[in-house]
Structures are given as structure tokens and as C-alpha cells.
């Protein structure tokens, strides 16, 4: 029996020619998700968060949408919060967030375009979780890959800044479809950049009918009361 193609010729016959007969094959059902391992670890993370009484929010957006700025202000104004922040390189965001007085851990993903549940599980070992009620996980700035990876969070929040273009939800529908809340950031710049608010809201509603929508400015504080109310809910 030949192991290369499964035919009944001797195992030593050459394979540089076509046999002219399809090798007999059998099909084995497998049914295994590529994300099975990530899902298992995400479920473990979720169990750990529940045991610690932590509400965990996965923050997603493209780079520069204002995730860190919104978090800086939130950590200053909402007690008993912490953050884990993912970037390819540098500790810069964690340093910015620690300046608020809240615990903040940095994950450097190297070349990886998203956080996965395993990276988060490792970071949790260093998190002083006692006494905390909320943990923000600031994902790598990317509107594509992070959508696929459950980290164990309770809620997903996708940010869209007014400077990015109103049709961004239509261009990146998958990540918006997974959102519990869409936060439109930098609302103080809306008039300056000619932000077409109605068009943006329509685009969000089209691809993410399940999501709530808030408009905020971490700079002026506009809309933050509603953001804090959503966090408390």
C-alpha cells in the first residue's frame, strides 16, 4: 500500500507521474473551530472576571480614534476602574493611563494585529483586581482582526471619531456588527471637519442595529454623563 496517494501499488513506485485514477479516500468529520482554543481561554477569563465581580469592556477602533483619551478621562472620573492596553510596541499608553492613578497594564503584541484571550489571561496575573469593579481592555487599533477574538469581555464598544468619515461602519461592517455600543468620539471637532452626523448615524444603524449609540468629547466632557451611565448600567 502506497502512503503517498493511498493506491494499492508498492510503496516505492515513483510519484512524478499522474496515475490516471483518483486515489481512494475516506472523509473524516472533524467539526472544530479555528478559534476553539481562544474561545476556551476567553471562557476561563470570563469566569475569572465574574468571580472578581469585574465588568469587562473591550474597546475597539481604528488607530487614533481616541480610545486612550476617552479612557484617561474615564479612569480619572470613575472610581475603581483599571485598564489593559494592547499595542504592537511601546508602553506609552499604559504610562498615560497610569498617570490617572488607576492600574494600567500594557500588552505588546509584537507583530500581532489584535489581542487574543491568551494574551489577556497572562496580563490578568499582574492585575491588582481586588476592589475593582470595571476593567477596560483597549484593543490594538484595528477595525478588522480584533473582531474575531473574544477576550472574555461582557461588552464590546466600538469607537468612531468624527474625523474618520461617516461611511466607516459600511466599510468595516463586521466589527460594528459585534458592538454593544458605538461611541462617536471627538464630537467637539464635528463642525470643524464638517461631520455629516445623520449620515454617520444611518450607517451605524444599518450595520449595527443591535448597538446603542453615544456621542462624546473627552476634551470638553460633552456626552460623558451618558457614557458613565451606560458603564454603570
Amino acid at each position: 500500500m502506497c502512503d503517498t496517494c493511498g493506491c494499492n501499488e508498492s510503496p516505492h513506485h515513483p510519484h512524478d507521474h499522474a496515475h490516471g485514477h483518483p486515489p481512494p479516500v475516506r472523509t473524516i468529520a472533524v467539526q472544530k473551530s479555528a478559534l476553539a482554543l481562544n474561545q476556551r481561554i476567553a471562557d476561563q477569563n470570563r469566569g475569572w472576571f465574574r468571580a472578581k465581580g469585574l465588568k469587562v469592556i473591550n474597546l475597539l477602533s481604528s488607530p487614533g480614534s481616541g480610545k486612550t483619551t476617552l479612557l484617561e478621562r474615564t479612569l480619572r472620573e470613575v472610581p475603581r476602574c483599571a485598564a489593559i492596553v494592547g499595542d504592537l510596541q511601546t508602553e506609552n499608553d499604559a504610562i498615560r493611563l497610569r498617570a490617572t492613578g488607576a492600574p494600567a497594564l500594557q500588552i505588546n503584541t509584537g507583530a500581532t494585529c489584535h489581542l487574543d484571550a491568551h494574551m489577556v489571561a497572562h496580563a490578568l496575573a499582574d492585575l491588582p483586581a481586588d476592589g475593582l469593579t470595571k476593567l477596560f481592555i483597549e484593543n490594538v487599533g484595528n477595525l478588522v482582526c480584533p473582531a474575531a477574538f473574544d477576550l472574555g469581555e461582557a461588552k464590546r464598544v466600538v469607537l468612531l471619531s468624527v474625523t474618520e468619515g461617516e461611511d466607516k461602519p459600511l466599510k468595516y461592517p463586521v466589527i460594528f456588527r459585534h458592538a454593544d455600543l458605538v461611541v462617536i468620539t471627538k464630537s467637539d471637532l464635528a463642525d470643524i471637519v464638517g461631520f455629516a452626523r445623520d449620515q454617520a448615524l444611518a450607517a451605524i444603524r444599518q450595520v449595527a442595529p443591535q448597538a446603542g449609540i453615544l456621542e462624546v468629547s473627552a476634551k470638553t466632557g460633552a456626552g460623558l454623563a451618558a457614557w458613565y451611565a451606560w458603564l454603570a448600567g
Partner: peptide
């Protein structure tokens, strides 16, 4: 993707029941 309205009644709040799959269904072996 990107247009989720119910074709029957036009509602926008359809529950997502599939479309996330990324899985190995089966293999063929000799």
C-alpha cells in the same frame, strides 16, 4: 454583510444565528 433588514417585515433587529463560522468541517485521508 452590511444589510441586515428582514426581507419580510423590514425590522432591523434580527438575531444573528450564523455567519461567524471558521471551522474545519472534515478531512480526506487515504
Amino acid at each position: 454583510v452590511g444589510s441586515y433588514l428582514c426581507p419580510n417585515c423590514g425590522a432591523a433587529d434580527g438575531e444573528l444565528r450564523g455567519g461567524h463560522e471558521l471551522e474545519l468541517v472534515s478531512i480526506e485521508v487515504p
